[in-house]
Design a protein around this nucleic acid. Structure first.
Lengths: 152, 152
DNA sequence: ATACTTGCAAATGATTTGCCAGTGT
DNA sequence: ACACTGGCAAATCATTTGCAAGTAT
């Protein structure tokens, strides 16, 4: 976990922009890297390294998970990508441009939703007095979703 | 991850009470089980399976991590114990009686603090409109602690 | 040409499982 | 006695690392 420059959060809105960001970051634009970005843009939400690598579309230049992880990490350092942990199990990666600033996840069924800015702000204020500055992008708020709440 | 009876939360305040709870739960009181409980009561806060097994006090009847995990899981099902994840790395186990209802953890230095009931209630209210019922016991609120907040 | 990347294999860390011997009740 | 447990080895899962061969610039 490199301290890195605390994620610049590039927010590239499309492939070309992301590729440009890669170049701007002094990184090489390889087929694998391009494929990882394509997979991320094609994904519907936070996806695991494995989902990105194998499923998603079929022809994938990134046959190896190690490369997948390496590239995701690189992109994360650049600020284009970030990853979230919904409960136990594999982490999930998203384009930072495609994700809001927070999530709530159900620890029982795995469902998750994005939180709007106002909600995140409210939560942040709620723990402000502890001196902590909360982020809900890497570890979401966890609890039970409507369907899993008992007595309902 | 057994659905189990959603953790009764026994809150045994001392070893004898915990042992009684074990018996009441139809479980056997073995030397290993007793040792795990002792380690938990001796711990100062959420501890990893490894810390509980090896460090803590020296003479440990539980020489094997597999047993440690098995027992922790059993105790968790009983409701005596629960575990929390502070960032990446090993999970940490605590007696449910010795822990509040929520935590905030720093994703950079690993520091963590318990949240008081009022704060947890406030946070819960903050995401109420999403239909989710938040719990901060298994996955804490994550962010930066005072010492790691940048511009300070 | 050369430094950055990839793929493959093997290593890690955390946790789980199979299995048989041991022991609480 | 007998079902529940413990220890040990081996298996899993997610992720990382070492390295030699490949490639973007």
């Amino acid at each position: 976990m490199t301290i890195a420059s605390e994620h610049p959060d590039l927010h590239a809105r499309n492939l070309p922009a992301a590729i440009a960001a890669l170049r701007a970051g002094g990184l090489r634009v390889s087929a694998a890297r391009r494929a990882v970005l394509e997979a991320l843009f094609a994904a519907e939400g936070p996806a695991t390294a494995e989902e990105l690598a194998s499923g998603l579309d079929g022809r994938l230049p990134v046959s190896d998970l190690a490369s997948m992880y390496r590239n995701l990490e690189t992109l994360e350092e650049l600020g284009l990508v970030r990853h979230v942990h919904f409960g136990h199990g594999a982490g999930r990666y998203v384009l930072s441009a495609a994700s809001g600033c927070g999530y709530v996840a159900c620890h029982r069924c795995g469902a998750f939703t994005e939180l709007d800015d106002a909600t995140v702000a409210a939560l942040r204020d709620g723990i402000e007095h502890t001196g902590f500055v909360a982020r809900f992008t890497h570890f979401p708020v966890v609890g039970l979703c409507p369907d899993c709440v008992p007595g309902t």
